[in-house]
Write a protein that binds this DNA or RNA. Structure first.
Length: 192
DNA sequence: ACCGTGATGTTCT
DNA sequence: GAACATCACGGTG
C-alpha cells in the first residue's frame, strides 16, 4: 500500500522513525527498483543548525516550506545526490534524509547503475541509494503520491534505535541530537 | 580491516 | 572562495 499525504504531514521525528521498514520505490523507463528503508535522519528546520532550512527560505530550500510528501534532492560534494522526504505541514520546514536501503526489487538494474556487484554496496549510503534507484536532481519537488517515486508499507519489522547523525560536526549542539534512526543490526546500514 | 585523499558542482558568504 | 547531510580507490598493516 502506497503511503498517503497524511503520513508525511506529521512531526519530522515521527516520520523519520516510522519510515524505517517502509519500501522506497522508483519506477522509471529502465525498470522498477526498490528497497526497504533501514536508516533515516531527521532535519528539523528552525531548531536544527544542521538543517539546510535552518537559515530560512531560499531557492534551494523552498520545497521544505510546502506540505509533506514531496522529494527534496541536492548535490553534495559536487558529485553525489542525496534523497530526502519533506515532512510536516506548510511552513514547518522539516525533511528526512534516506541514508540506506536493503535492496528488494530490480537488483540487477541497481548493479548496472552502481557498477558494483556486492549487494551490500548497492544502497548502503545516501549517495549510493540515490544512484541505485536512478534518482537525479530532476527529482527535486517530485510528488511521493505519484507513480514515478513513492513509498509503500511492508510487513518488515525491526527494532528501531536513535543515534547521532552522521557528518554534521559543523552544527554545534545539534550534532549531538539523536535524530538518526536505524533498523538495529541490519547489514545494509551506511555505518555500523 | 582501516586510513588518507582526491574528485567535483552548487550554494551561500 | 569556502564549505559541503559522500564515495571510491590505493596504500599500509
Amino acid at each position: 500500500m502506497k503511503l498517503e499525504r497524511e503520513f508525511y504531514q506529521r512531526d519530522g521525528l515521527t516520520v523519520a522513525r516510522e519510515l524505517i521498514g517502509k519500501k522506497l520505490v522508483t519506477n522509471l523507463p529502465e525498470g522498477l527498483t526498490s528497497g526497504i528503508i533501514v536508516e533515516t535522519e531527521a532535519y528539523m528546520g528552525a531548531i536544527d543548525a544542521a538543517a539546510h532550512s535552518y537559515r530560512g527560505k531560499t531557492e534551494r530550500t523552498k520545497i521544505f516550506y510546502g506540505v509533506g510528501g514531496f522529494v527534496y534532492v541536492y548535490l553534495i560534494y559536487g558529485m553525489h545526490i542525496c534523497t530526502n522526504v519533506v515532512a510536516n505541514v506548510e511552513n514547518i520546514p522539516e525533511a528526512i534524509l534516506i541514508r540506506a536501503l536493503q535492496p528488494v526489487d530490480g537488483v540487477d538494474l541497481m548493479r548496472l547503475r552502481r557498477g558494483k556487484k556486492n549487494l551490500r554496496e548497492l544502497c548502503s549510503g545516501p549517495g549510493k541509494l540515490s544512484k541505485a534507484l536512478g534518482i537525479t536532481k530532476n527529482f527535486y519537488g517530485a510528488d511521493l503520491c505519484d507513480d514515478e517515486i513513492f513509498i509503500e508499507s511492508t510487513d518488515f519489522r525491526a527494532e528501531v534505535t536513535a543515534t547521532k547523525r552522521i557528518n554534521v560536526d559543523y552544527a554545534g549542539e545539534a550534532a549531538n541530537f539523536l535524530w538518526r534512526f536505524v533498523a538495529v543490526g541490519n547489514e545494509f546500514l551506511s555505518v555500523k
